[in-house]
Every structure is written in structure tokens, then in C-alpha cells.
Design a protein around this nucleic acid. Structure first.
Length: 771
DNA sequence: CAGTGAGCGAGCTTCCGCTTGACTT
């Protein structure tokens, strides 16, 4: 036992640091925060100057006991939590719950886990900065007040179990507002002719320098090209350079992994955590682009030996992100000589991405040469223009190209290499093609682009991006979906050999892959909050309170005063809204059903969104139908609603009982004699015929018959051995148990079966199953 | 597990930021 106890936040970090310090030092970790407000109540004494009531978190009780013991055995305790607001607070909570003397306890900080940095930190201890701690308390209490006062308003006015908060509600708002923009968007079409010219030694493709409004205008232009002459009237050659992107932060890593590897935000974090724990990369929750000198030197070595000294350009980047706290380094490889490492394909691919990005960030700029040419048309005032790009020196491009959210678009207008051309040169036209193009609305958010937007607004922290995205999906405010697009006609005009041809084709537009869509609840809750709590819902709310937290940290503002200033008007607003606001109810009239002459409306009910045919206060009971996934009360049309009433559909009779087709929670199904059979994807519940339905019913019967293997009686309970989707399993009442691979299910006797049941891993209990 | 949509009432829900494991269909 060393005489010094050092406490950091992460156990992986503790392990590394222990190696740097002598045997006099024991390094251990707090596993993040150790105390918090109680979770089942506000836990803030509002009347009494917002005094927070903290307790050791339930899952930290054991840990605190161990730390108390270690602290008692040590001469000096060094609190080495992160150097930011939260880290300072963790140190303070540790001191409080370990009963440490604030004046005796040494507080040390470092931004990088390198030996010199740690040794330097040990030589420069300070005391806990109570102002910084207070800034964290203000942050914590404000979030609690907002979350725990707003959520109950939603329970009363919308429906139970919903939630609201400073971060999640704004995240939902971004998605709802984007969806509305897309709904309101009307695509405009235009034509931009492209001339293809033949030149010796290659060809030139040039675009008209203006858009043409419609087909006729385009036709007129193409006509004018038939007997026109084309001459190069301008050539501009300009050098240009491209610089590498800075090393990864949490947010940029999530974005690039999403674009380049197709990983979800949570998958990226899970893989990064593994790489971190294995010691392959530095800490993965960071907002800093900073690299340690050690890393910069190592990268330089690597680049020089692999590509040559002219490819090296050591640089230090500075953070642009709002509210960045920079307690860590950027995310980088720990050992640059490992070009590829990690368990499994997913991990290695993420590692390689990090390696390349980091190394590229220390490489030379790429040197480019852009050539812009203009082509006069003798019969038109317009010109054709083309841009060529040549790479003179590839620099960092040798290793890494940052991707872009709309790569599609870039690919289309991609820059190319131009052949040698001279000013005044006459060009011979091969053909001109002009395809109708449509404007596009702003794209829906992906998980990663939402993270980028939140970071830009200074909302949320690296450790919360992934959880926030999962919260708003768990509350069903938002869903991540892949949806097919719709067909759209476009016109293609081509001038070739003096003839103009016109062709109409169809393209698919609006197809979406893994994009975030708001739900009806998401939209209702958002509108309710936005209307009644505009302050908190303001995109700049976080930035404003962050400014005040900074003042608290600088000792210029009292944290409890700050809270009081915020809370008074906020709480009044909560009270007033609770008293006065109407229950949120959506009821949108869609029109009259031409068949029955009854009104059709879309509504938000107890069980979610639905459409209604007829009125509830009339003699005839109205007909109801649930909305399908992807349909919104706000945008469903009369025709779509009428379609929904067509189900459930009676398609005939089988064995004297009716056969129904409908769509349920798990997709389309056929119901017969109280039994449900799923309708496979290639069949349509609106169209399916009786013969096919009977086929499905009979197939299911065969599967059922094969399901049963054997059964036992034990202590009055039936134990069955059945064939399931993943092979044979044991069923006792509502519990299912696994049968190990290699065991023949048919040969199991009661004794063996009971043993399997008793040895099954206990659910949600400590430890793993015994062998 | 595939339903429901009148109304009432009991009991429950909820935040953001730090950290890792323990979950299994």
C-alpha cells in the first residue's frame, strides 16, 4: 500500500497512471460521479436558497466504502478528476463523502495521460476550486428543476411518462421544425444544359452558367446551339490548397463513423470504449482537438518514415465548439506504430479511421490547381463554364479525405481534369444534354448530424450525445427510419447531330436511410412546450445559462442567486400553464367520405394517433382506425385515411369460420378462429385472396404441430420442451430456458430438464451463471 | 401479442453528466 492515494474518474486511466508513478502511489477510480440528487424527488430545497440534497448514488455505496478504507490508510489523497466543471464537482463530492479535509486534500489536473504531464501535475497541486464546483451545482440544480417541473406538466396535459428537459426538448424541436420545413417545401424544377465538346486529346464537359426555367426555354436554347460556334473566351488558372481536418472529438468521430462506416452514434461509442479500455486510443468522450507533444512527435516520425519529410507538417489545432471544456486530448491512437488494431472488423475499422484522421491532421496541405474556363456561344448571351482541378501535391490526401453530408451532390458536379486548352480556341460540339432538376429541401437529421447541430448550439456534452439520442427515441418523440422514396417524372432533352430529342423518365426521390422522423407525440409535445415555455425552448437558452455558469466559476456571481433569478419566472410559468392550458388534443378535419357522406378526422387518443369516420355523438358509432407507421396527423390526407378504414377486411370463410385480414403492431396478419398468422412481406393485406390465406393458416398449423416435443409435470406445474424460432427450448409457465447446444432435446428427462432450469442465469441479479 | 377511442381514479412516470458493466431477445 502506497502512502498516496490518487483518485481519477476512469479505471482504464487509473491503470495507465499507476505505471507512471512510483510504488508510493495507489491509483484508483471513482467511476464518474459518486453522489447526486435523489432520483425520486426534486431534492432541492427551493424555499431554503436552493439547497441541494445529495446522497451517494445507490450503485456507488460499495465503492465509497472501499475508497474510505483506502483513504484512511493513506497519508495524502490526491483528487485527480478531470479539469472541468463536472470533474471539479466529482472531486468535491469525493471529499465530502470520504470525509476528507478540504485543506489537506490535494487537487491535481492534467489534460493528457503522459508521464511528463502526470509528474508535472503532481508537482503542482492546488485546492478544490469551490467556485467551479458551484457552477456545476447551478448546472445540476437548473437541469433538475427544468426536467422535474416540466415533465409533470406533460403528464397532466398530454399523457403520462413523458419527459422534457433542457437538452432533449431542444433536440426534438430541431427534428420537428426540420420536418415541417420539408412538409412545406415545394420543389421547383429547372434545366441546366451541359455541353459535351470534343477536343484533341480528350473532351470538355461544361455547364451553362445559368439555370433555364422550363422545357420551352431549354428547347429554344438548344435550338440556338444548332448552328452556333463555340469559343474559349477565358481561362483562369489559380493555385489552391486544402488543409486536413483536425483530429477527432466525440462529435466529429460520431459524424465520420456514421458517414464513412454507417455506424450509429451508440455503436461508435461502444466500439471506441473497447478500444480505449484495451489501451489503443485515448479517451473517447472529449470536446478537444488538442494533441500532446508526445503524440505530435510520434505522428511526425510515422509520417516521415512512411511518406517522407515533405509530407509532414506538425500542427496544433484550436477548438471552435461553443462551451468546450477541453479536459482531455483529442481522440487519437496511443501508439502510432499500430496502423491497424482492435478486436473484430468493426473495432478495427473504427481504429483505422481514428489513426488516419489523426496522422492526416499532422500532414502537409494538398496543393491544387483550379482551372476555370468560359466558352462563348455565338448565338447566345449565355456561356458554358467548366472547372478542372489538378492535384499538384497530394499531401494529407494520400491518407484521408473527410466526407461530407451531401456527397451525392458533390459527385454530380464533380471536378475533373481538363485537357490542354488555349484562349480563343474553337470547340466542336458533340452534344448537349439537359436534364430537369428539382430543388431539394433541407435534409432530415441523422443521429450524427443532430449531434453536430447540438454541439454547434453548445447543447449537451460528449458524454450525453448518444444517451440523448436514445432518450428521445425511447419516449417515441422521434423514430429512426428507412423509408422508400416516391416516383417523380423528369424530362431529358438532348441535342445531337442537329436534332433535339425529348424523353420523359421517372426517378425516385425522397428515399431516406436511417433518418430521424418526429412522431405525432413528438410534434404535440414540442408545440405545447414551445408555446408555453419559450424561454427554455429557445435555441440559445443553454448558451445564455452557460455564460452565467462561467461567471459563477469566475467567482463573479453567486450560484444560488443565479438560480433564483431563473426559477421565479420559470416556476410561475409552470403554475400558470398547469392551471390554464387546455389538455393537448389534436383533432384535424380531413373532409367528407364521398361514400357515406360522414366526416373524417385525424385525432390523437389514449392509444395514439387514429382516424375516425363519423361523429361520436350520433346514433351510429364511429369507425376507428390507427395510423400506420410513418403517417402523421398533421399530414395525412383524406384518401389515405379512407384507405385505413378498409381494414380489417373479411376475405371469406374457411371451415365455417370467417377469415380476416388486418394490420397489427407486428405487421399485417390473417385471423381465423382466434388464431393469428403473419402475412409475409410479398403479400398485401388489402389484396390477399382466400386461397392464399388458407395456405398460410395451414402452414402455421404444421409449424405448431412440430413445435411440441415433450412435456413433464413437476410440482403441479407443466414443463414443456418446444421447438422455437431459435431451436428447442424449455417452457415453464411464462418463463423460458435455454437448452445448451449439443444436447438432444428429445432425450431430456425430467431430472435433466430441472437441472437446466435451476442452473439458468438469474435474471437481473448479481453475477453470471455458474458453470 | 394483433383491442381499444365514455369517464373516473389510483399509482406511476421525469432531468443532465460523469463513469462501467450486465443485460438477452
Amino acid at each position: 500500500m502506497g502512502r498516496n492515494l490518487v483518485i481519477v474518474e476512469s479505471p482504464a486511466k487509473a491503470k495507465t497512471i499507476e505505471k507512471f508513478l512510483g510504488s508510493d502511489f495507489t491509483v484508483t477510480s471513482s467511476y464518474g460521479h459518486v453522489r447526486d440528487l435523489l432520483s425520486d424527488e426534486i431534492s432541492v430545497d427551493i424555499e431554503n436558497n436552493f439547497n441541494p440534497r445529495y446522497e451517494v448514488s445507490p450503485d456507488k455505496k460499495k465503492l465509497i466504502k472501499e475508497l474510505q478504507k483506502l483513504a484512511a490508510e493513506s497519508e495524502t489523497v490526491w483528487l485527480a478528476t478531470d479539469e472541468d466543471r463536472e470533474g471539479e464537482a466529482i472531486s468535491w463530492h469525493l471529499a465530502e463523502s470520504l470525509g476528507l479535509d478540504i485543506n489537506e486534500t490535494k487537487r491535481i489536473v492534467f489534460h493528457e495521460i503522459t508521464k511528463p504531464a502526470i509528474l508535472k501535475a503532481i508537482q503542482n497541486p492546488r485546492k478544490i476550486d469551490i467556485n467551479l464546483v458551484n457552477a456545476q451545482q447551478a448546472r445540476r440544480v437548473l437541469d433538475r428543476l427544468v426536467g422535474y417541473e416540466l415533465s409533470p406538466v406533460l403528464w397532466k396535459k398530454v399523457r403520462p411518462s413523458l419527459s422534457a428537459g433542457r437538452v432533449q426538448s431542444v433536440a426534438v424541436k430541431l427534428i420537428v421544425e426540420r420536418e415541417r420545413e420539408i412538409m412545406a417545401f415545394e420543389a421547383e424544377s429547372s434545366f441546366k444544359p451541359r455541353g459535351h465538346f470534343k477536343v484533341s486529346g480528350g473532351k470538355v464537359i461544361a455547364e451553362l452558367n445559368t439555370k433555364l426555367g422550363d422545357k420551352n426555354e431549354t428547347r429554344d436554347f438548344l435550338n440556338s446551339c444548332i448552328n452556333a460556334g463555340f469559343k474559349i473566351s477565358d481561362i483562369q488558372v489559380k493555385p489552391a490548397k486544402k488543409s486536413p481536418a483536425p483530429p477527432f472529438t466525440t462529435s466529429t468521430l460520431q459524424q465520420e463513423a456514421s458517414r464513412k462506416l454507417g455506424y450509429s452514434v451508440s455503436k461508435t461509442m461502444m466500439l471506441a470504449q473497447k478500444l480505449y479500455e484495451a489501451g489503443h486510443i485515448t479517451y473517447m468522450r472529449t470536446d478537444s482537438v488538442n494533441l500532446s507533444q508526445l503524440a505530435i512527435d510520434a505522428a511526425q516520425n510515422e509520417i516521415t518514415s512512411q511518406f517522407g519529410a515533405n509530407y509532414s507538417n506538425p500542427r496544433q489545432y484550436t477548438t471552435k465548439a461553443q462551451g468546450a471544456q477541453e479536459a482531455h486530448e483529442a481522440i487519437r491512437p496511443t501508439y502510432f506504430q499500430n496502423h491497424s488494431i482492435g478486436e473484430g472488423r468493426d473495432e478495427s475499422r473504427l481504429y483505422e479511421l481514428i489513426w488516419k484522421r489523426t496522422v492526416a491532421s499532422q500532414m502537409a496541405d494538398a496543393k491544387l490547381e483550379n482551372t476555370n474556363i468560359k466558352i462563348d456561344i455565338s448565338t447566345s448571351k449565355h456561356q458554358f463554364v467548366a472547372t478542372g482541378q489538378q492535384i499538384k501535391f497530394d499531401g494529407f490526401l494520400k491518407l484521408y479525405i473527410e466526407s461530407n453530408d451531401d456527397d451525392e451532390e458533390n459527385a454530380e458536379s464533380g471536378e475533373m481534369l481538363l485537357p490542354n486548352l488555349t484562349l480563343g480556341q474553337e470547340l466542336q460540339l458533340d452534344f448537349v444534354e439537359s436534364r430537369e432538376r428539382f430543388t431539394r429541401p433541407a435534409p432530415r437529421y441523422t443521429e450524427a448530424s443532430l449531434v453536430r447541430k447540438l454541439e454547434e448550439l453548445g447543447i449537451g456534452r460528449p458524454s450525453t450525445y448518444a444517451p440523448t439520442i436514445s432518450t428521445i427515441q425511447k419516449r417515441s418523440y422521434v423514430t429512426k427510419e428507412t423509408r422508400p422514396g416516391t416516383d417523380r417524372k423528369y424530362v431529358l432533352l438532348v441535342l445531337k447531330g442537329g436534332n433535339i430529342t425529348e424523353k420523359e423518365s421517372t426517378e425516385v426521390f425522397g428515399a431516406e436511410k436511417n433518418k430521424l422522423f418526429p412522431s405525432d407525440v413528438g410534434m404535440l409535445v414540442n408545440d405545447f412546450l414551445d408555446e408555453n415555455f419559450s424561454g427554455v425552448m429557445d435555441y440559445h437558452f443553454t448558451a445564455k445559462v452557460e455564460e452565467e455558469f462561467d461567471h459563477i466559476a469566475e467567482g463573479k456571481l453567486d450560484w444560488q442567486n443565479m438560480l433564483s433569478g431563473f426559477y421565479k419566472p420559470f416556476h410561475e410559468n409552470v403554475e400558470q400553464t398547469t392551471k390554464e392550458a387546455k389538455r393537448v388534443n389534436q383533432n384535424r378535419d380531413l373532409g367528407i367520405d364521398p361514400k357515406t357522406q360522414l366526416p373524417v378526422s385525424a385525432r390523437f387518443g389514449k392509444y395514439g394517433p387514429y382516424v375516425q369516420l363519423g361523429e361520436s355523438d350520433t346514433e351510429e358509432k364511429p369507425k376507428y382506425a390507427k395510423l400506420r407507421p410513418g403517417q402523421l396527423i398533421e399530414s395525412i390526407t383524406l384518401d389515405e385515411a379512407l384507405e385505413l378504414f378498409k381494414l380489417p377486411r373479411t376475405i371469406g370463410e374457411f371451415e365455417g369460420k370467417p377469415v380476416l385480414a388486418d394490420v397489427g403492431r407486428f405487421g399485417p396478419y390473417v385471423k381465423h378462429n382466434n388464431k393469428f398468422v403473419s402475412i409475409p412481406k410479398d403479400e398485401d393485406p388489402y389484396e390477399i385472396e382466400l386461397s392464399k390465406a388458407i395456405e398460410l393458416i395451414e402452414a402455421k398449423r404444421v409449424a405448431e404441430a412440430n413445435k411440441f416435443i415433450k412435456e413433464f409435470e413437476h410440482e403441479g406445474k407443466k414443463i414443456e420442451i418446444l421447438n422455437g424460432r431459435w431451436g428447442p427450448y424449455i417452457k415453464r409457465g411464462k418463463e423460458n430456458f435455454k437448452i445448451p447446444k449439443g444436447t438432444k432435446a428429445e432425450e431430456l428427462d425430467l431430472e435433466q430438464t430441472l437441472e437446466l432450469i435451476n442452473n439458468a442465469p438469474a435474471k437481473a441479479k448479481k453475477g453470471r451463471a455458474r458453470k
